[in-house]
Simulated assay, not measured.
Amino acid sequence: MSEGETIAKIAGTPPSPARESGRSPGRPKGRRSDVTRTRILDAAERLFANRGYEGASIRDVAAAADVQVHAVSYHFGPKEALFDAVVVRRAAIMTAHRRAALEAARTAAADGPIPIAAMVRAYVTPFIRSAGHGQPGWRNYAALMGRLANSPLGTEIIAKHYDETARAYIAEFGRALPEVDAAELVDGFLDMVAAMLAICARTGRSERLSGRRMPRSTEESIETLVRFHTAGFLALAAKPKG
């Protein structure tokens, strides 16, 4: 198995949070309580993705989950805490996959720098596959992350749950491209994340512009992004000085 195949296997489709053994923050009381919590989280995730944080109230979430308003507050507290629980539920899964993929890339590279393509693939593959494999919750989460990336609230939430892993990747990009300014590496990394989110948005614009009737496959989209952003990072290193 090649290095790319190994990383792609480890950076595979994340499982549904409902199948994870760990519980998200709150007040677990048993199986019935877990089912209620999952319904609330699923409903909140869908509403926040479609309406944004400000556009969905606790009452809206309760109605969508078919529970009493007090049940939402009992399990999650205020709206801010509910929103955080929605984000962290899948962020924990995504972080685990990305860290495993990065560790696999480090192992494959032995003592040398990790190839740029391997790092790009390790970071974007779990997210794009999760949004593209048909599970509605992950599609909603991808839409929610797209909203967060362009909002003041998102800056704080993303920093809390994603910055540590992002810094680990950026450090490896810096090791592979020591001649590139740190600020440029961060800009390149954020451009890569924006492209990843755009792919997952599935707005149909790509099909309209290209004249295709059907969207490209998840794997085709991943490979295009990997090739494009690998070239972009390498172009930063080739920038003329002075």
Rank of each mutant, 00 (worst) to 15 (best):
A108V: 15
A198T: 04
D60T: 04
R59L: 06
L82I: 06
N150E: 11
T230I: 05
A198I: 01
V180F: 09
G242N: 00
R139L: 12
A122L: 03
G30Q: 07
I93N: 11
P126D: 10
R167D: 14
S21N: 11
L177K: 01
Y53P: 01
D187P: 01
R106N: 11
P215Y: 10
F83V: 05
H97W: 14
S210E: 07
L197A: 10
D60G: 08
T6I: 14
T36P: 05
H75Q: 13
T203D: 04
A159V: 03
Y141L: 08
A194F: 03
A44G: 04
S217V: 12
R32N: 13
P28A: 12
S33T: 12
A11F: 11
N50P: 00
D60L: 05
G204S: 03
A110F: 13
D34W: 09
D187F: 08
G22C: 12
R31K: 01
R129A: 09
S210R: 10
A201L: 10
V35L: 13
A92G: 15
T165I: 13
M196W: 01
R205E: 11
A166W: 09
A63I: 08
A168P: 02
F76L: 02
A92V: 14
A104F: 05
F233A: 07
A237W: 04
A43S: 06
T203L: 01
R51F: 12
S57H: 07
M214C: 06
A108C: 15
P126M: 09
E223L: 10
F173A: 06
L47S: 04
A71R: 13
M214I: 10
T218L: 06
S210F: 03
I222Y: 02
P113K: 10
K29E: 03
P115M: 11
R39G: 05
A237V: 05
E45T: 01
V186L: 11
G146A: 04
A92I: 09
G174K: 03
T107S: 15
G188L: 07
E45D: 05
D66W: 08
A101C: 12
